[in-house]
Nucleic acid binder design. Sequence first.
DNA 1: CTCACTGCAAAGGTTTTGCAGTGGG
DNA 2: CCCACTGCAAAACCTTTGCAGTGAG
Lengths: 141, 141
Amino acid sequence: MNFTIEQIRNKLSVKGLKVTPQRLAILDAVYQLGSHPTADQIIEFIRHTNPNIASGTVYKVLDTLIENRLIKKVYTETGAMRYDGIMENHHHLYCSENDIIEDFPDKDLDKLLHEYFEKRKIKDFHIKEIVLQIKGTFDRH
Amino acid sequence: MNFTIEQIRNKLSVKGLKVTPQRLAILDAVYQLGSHPTADQIIEFIRHTNPNIASGTVYKVLDTLIENRLIKKVYTETGAMRYDGIMENHHHLYCSENDIIEDFPDKDLDKLLHEYFEKRKIKDFHIKEIVLQIKGTFDRH
DNA sequence: CTCACTGCAAAGGTTTTGCAGTGGG
DNA sequence: CCCACTGCAAAACCTTTGCAGTGAG
């Protein structure tokens, strides 16, 4: 996931958000860090180029980005929230041994699930999104 | 999910755990409360019969129960962890509007997924468990 | 120029930890 | 009896909040 600063600037503009150096840095960090960073990892990463950023600001910006559908939260096993810059539907491989979460996009699987739930309606429930938590272990890493 | 105190006592014994009033109360609370209580809800529930229990103890006992595969953690959107007494494979309906998490057992779906991943092997990853996060909204409630 | 955004610091909520004392096997 | 478990209180975490000051549009 590589976006230029110009592309990131544009993503913010399109949503009517003010383009601040902090927002650029944070969204860039989510993209560059890739594998579902925590707020803390984002702060760490940003401090290299942006030493004065406040952690409160990072949380506020992350919330704003979520509200504007530029990033997503990922539910995790540990206390800390993680953030995900990929907005296309995809699933997650969880390895509890080393706390890794990998992306698992699979169009065929999405199609299969869609067809299944077309037939198998859930009473009184309207599905918006289905995310698989595929838990297991990596053979290497 | 209704277990007698004797059954709960037995579940603990089988795992080689000491049967203490606190552990009985906590496991009983997870079963009785049903829909994925938080630690706080468990403490609240237990205090009625067990006013002196320490919250630290509750967290320790919950960890012990998880290690011994008597309960599971449920990943959630908010900061707080939730606990689940159903050990059979099942999925979850998430409604973010009212923070409800409902169980969704579905053997046919499990079979479908199992067959799918028999064919569609994930490189270097060994699947232990698949849980669907089915996100959406309840029509009533 | 103005209002949304940032920095700072304090507070809030949840979970963990250490240690002395207790009770289950 | 002995070691695992509990109660208590402090601390560690992560995240939110309020407010004064700043800067993007």
